[in-house]
Simulated assay, not measured.
Amino acid sequence: MRVLLHYDYEHTARPSGGLDVVSCPEEDDERFAKLLPEAEVLWHVLRPVTAADLDRAPNLRLIQKLGTGVNTIGLDAAEERGIAVANMPGTNAQAVAEAALLLMLAALRRVVTFDARTRAGRGWPADRALVGGELSGRTVGLLGGGQIAGLLRGMLEAIGATVLYTSRRPRPEDPSWRPLDDLLRASDVVSVHIPLTAETHHLLDRERLALLPPGAIVVNTARGAVIDESALVEALSSGRLGGAGLDVFEREPVPASNPLAALDNVVVMPHVAWLTRETWDRYFDVAEENCRRLAAGEELLHRVR
């Protein structure tokens, strides 16, 4: 079975698996177009899969998302062509939860500014405006009640933070659950862990960001468009918010002209919260199993369409 891994990463197929895996960097559109016609399975990461791509792939039977979010896949186009789509919820949860914690700490402790000053030979003494803060004793609000949020909650509570969360399904019986607006008003740090849908697009807009306490920190390791970036830039530039830790953006790859990249109270990463060797191992375990199931005519794991 010919598998196209659409990422610059090496995969050694198990001899018994019957898989012929070829990789292609996401930015190499020419190579991608050449490899698509022979692909039976596409292992997809982030570069959007469009209807035009699928038109070049007459043999494609499965788009396997390596991760959870399928907003980068043309689901209707895949369904029209009889191409199955599956994801793998939870496989990157540990890595993303740890990255969210990393971004919180980095924003609170002004790591971007201190890193730049230290590299420039002027790291000491630190001026009083750069005194950082601790997570212990702060209230952290989690947007989402899934596996990533659950893992992160345990980490935060071990540090000494108070954790609140909100979710699409109300859970009034849980004292840590809050409606969204109430959660924002109570949170010194808010962290996003929800998918991007029509309902969640710009969920954190200007009005909702204004509900956060002065000096609050915003962290996003989910999808960029859940936050209105222009409103976030305004709140950070004015000093209304204390900082942000961002792994995802409305436009990706992130252009150098993005104003968030110019703010020294913002820590940025290029959508790599999931990117660990352990995550890749879990990805390949699920992806290979679904290829086996596809070949055997069995029900796929975590089929989306």
Rank of each mutant, 00 (worst) to 15 (best):
T221L: 05
H271W: 08
I227L: 04
T221C: 15
A231K: 00
M269V: 01
A225L: 11
A295I: 07
P259W: 08
G239D: 14
I227D: 08
P259T: 00
L232W: 09
V254S: 02
T279G: 14
V226M: 01
C291R: 09
P259A: 04
W274S: 11
D281R: 15
P270L: 09
G297C: 01
E278M: 08
N220V: 08
L246G: 04
D281W: 13
E229C: 07
E289P: 10
A273G: 13
D281A: 15
N290C: 02
V266L: 01
L260W: 07
R292T: 05
H271F: 03
V267T: 11
S238V: 09
E288H: 08
R240W: 07
L236S: 14
A231F: 06
A222D: 10
V248L: 13
L241S: 05
T221A: 11
T279C: 14
E234P: 03
T221V: 15
L294N: 07
V268P: 02
P270K: 12
L236T: 13
G245Y: 00
L263H: 02
G224A: 09
A295D: 11
Y283D: 05
P255V: 04
A216C: 12
N220L: 05
N290S: 00
W280H: 03
V233T: 11
A295F: 12
V233K: 03
D281K: 15
R223K: 10
C291I: 02
L294A: 09
V268C: 15
T279D: 13
F249D: 03
E229Y: 10
N258K: 02
E252N: 05
E298F: 04
D285H: 08
F249E: 05
A222H: 13
D285W: 03
A262F: 10
R282H: 13
E234Y: 00
G245H: 02
F284N: 06
R292C: 06
Y283E: 06
N258T: 07
L241A: 04
S257Q: 09
V272C: 13
L241H: 11
E288M: 03
A222L: 07
L263F: 10
L241C: 04
L232S: 08
L275P: 03
V266K: 02
D228A: 14
A256C: 06
L275V: 13
V219R: 00
